[in-house]
Design a protein around this nucleic acid. Structure first.
Length: 477
RNA sequence: GGCGGGUUGGCGGAGAGGUUACGCAGCGGAUUGCAAAUCCGUGAAGACCGGUUCGAUUCCGGUACCCGCCUCCA
């Protein structure tokens, strides 16, 4: 059996992965707050842990892996958007507006992530459907002396968990020294964090022993992972920016509520994504959603197929910062296009030599890809295909933009005749050795997005680029 | 200020204490009327300064620079 090795943030070492129960390998990944379209940074953990999900299913069997990824659907940004709609004149109650907004955002999320070739997790719990469990866990933490209620809030007593800060390598005292937060007066300790907070009438809220309110951010992951995966499970994943405070607080809550269980064994964190070397931000104009890329609504200006986006992400190890650049996207597209031609009609073979070893070595997707290149240049196209399938690069989807015949389907009769005519005219010009004319026609066709493949004696074969523009064919007299 | 991560050839990007990463671009060649596409071949690296070692880009220490987190952003 393949031994998977994973870098564990908790121990800061790469370890052999040994599941608690090989018959049910359990993974929890922090999912999105559903207030808007997912941006391309959100897509990174989704792709990274999708690859891990596929690897685990391969090694332990598809029915022996449980992957939970949550939706945070209680959040101030969601509330703000719902309130904006209400103020705009929508007469419906706030709760309904919120539900509509989160339902819509979840639908978008599913569409966009599916376009990236990711499998659906086993379960996708919504925070609002686990409020009862959160209240119960909060009460349990109070009962055990790890939390206290004050002025409608419930706060976690950080000093009651001796290992607080272990995951992110901080001590409570250091954090207080460097803290820039204003400390609420009802906190016993500046680092204590909220498990429950009161809601005003214009905010969504749930009845609780501490009055009408809503949960703090961190408790949802503790409550839902416990409910769906049990008090201990194998892998907990998310972006490195969640390491502190979110994951630190999750550990504190869960370890204090279930002291002997150990909570998550392996903690994995993906590094952040940049765009053209800079942090992605709306003010820099380099902020893109996945949908923006898919629809060509970004600085590159062209539609980036989901498989291409996925391929670009796979080229960088998850633990390193990744830079999204147009150049990378172009190269990835060319590589996939070339590979597609040689794999489309080929059966799935064995995985290429070295492929699985790389992937099992802390998810070295970039290394695994190099073995795909080797399979390609070695003529082992059925192995190349197997590797692509394994990584979730769906050739059926690639066909939509890489298959010349597929592109021709959408070509009108007139345009097809026009292209054929020009290709034939060029052929005639070549026959009569009028190379000036032949080259002029060639330049026109290329500019219009027609790719020519010259044959020895017969008329050239041709196919279309995705950017084919029939209007440009009219330039020739 | 505290904590964490990074720095590899023109660009992107991996592994390994000593032997070619790989991809793109470049260069040379095959092919072509010339190109494109395709194929073959090929030069080029390890931020800086020390240390360990027979030998380090790979291990250890320091310096510089970059990035992230510390503010419910993956």
């Amino acid at each position: 059996m393949t031994t998977i090795r994973l870098y564990n943030t908790r121990t800061r070492t790469k370890e052999d992965f040994v599941p608690i129960d090989p018959a049910n390998v359990r993974m929890y990944v922090c999912g999105p707050t559903v207030y808007d379209r997912a941006h391309i940074g959100n897509a990174r953990p989704v792709i990274v842990f999708d690859v891990l999900f596929r690897l685990l299913r391969h090694v332990y069997g598809p029915d022996h892996v449980t992957y939970v990824r949550n939706f945070t659907d209680v959040d101030d940004k969601i509330n703000a958007e719902a309130q904006r709609r209400k103020e705009a004149g929508d007469p419906r109650p706030l709760e309904e507006l919120i539900r509509e907004r989160t339902d819509e955002t979840i639908r978008w999320y599913h569409e966009d992530m599916a376009a990236l070739g990711t499998l659906a997790p086993s379960q996708e719990p919504r925070a609002t459907e686990y409020i009862g469990q959160m209240i119960a866990m909060t009460q349990d933490l109070i009962d055990k002396g790890h939390a206290y209620a004050k002025e409608g809030h419930v706060l976690f007593r950080v000093r009651s968990y001796k290992d607080y800060g272990a995951l992110s390598g901080r001590s409570v005292d250091d954090m207080i020294a460097g803290a820039r937060v204003e400390v609420a007066p009802f906190k016993e300790d500046p680092m204590d964090f909220v498990l429950w907070k009161p809601s005003t009438d214009d905010l969504p809220g749930w009845e609780s022993p501490w009055g009408r309110g809503r949960p703090g951010w961190h408790i949802e992951c503790s409550a839902m992972s416990h409910e769906l995966l049990g008090p201990s499970f194998d892998i907990h994943g998310g972006g490195i920016d969640l390491q502190f405070p979110h994951h630190e607080n999750e550990i504190a809550q869960s370890m204090c509520a279930h002291p002997d269980a150990g909570f998550a064994k392996v903690w994995m964190h993906n590094e952040m994504l940049q765009v053209e070397g800079k942090k992605m931000s709306k003010s820099l104009g380099n902020f893109f959603t996945v949908r923006d890329l898919l629809e060509g609504n970004w600085s590159g200006g062209w539609k980036v197929p989901g498989e291409v986006i996925r391929f670009v992400y796979l080229q960088t190890h998850y633990s390193k910062p990744m830079d999204w650049t147009e150049e990378k996207a172009k190269q990835a597209m060319e590589t996939l296009r070339r590979w597609y031609r040689f794999t489309k009609d080929i059966s799935i073979g064995e995985l290429p030599f070295g492929f699985m070893t790389s992937l099992a070595d802390d998810l070295n997707t970039a290394g695994a890809l190099s073995f795909l290149h080797a399979a390609y240049s070695g003529g082992k196209h059925h192995e190349l295909r197997a590797g692509l399938e394994f990584l979730g690069v769906n050739l059926t989807c690639v066909a939509e933009w890489a298959d010349p015949e597929g592109l021709l389907v959408s070509l009108s009769e007139t345009d097809r005749d026009r292209v054929s005519e020009l290709v034939f005219l060029r052929h005639q010009a070549k026959q009569s050795r009028d190379f000036a004319r032949a080259d002029k026609i060639r330049d026109l066709l290329v500019a219009a997005g027609v790719k020519l493949k010259d044959q020895k004696d017969s008329v050239s074969e041709w196919e279309l680029s995705p950017d084919f523009d029939p209007a440009k064919l009219e330039a020739l007299k």
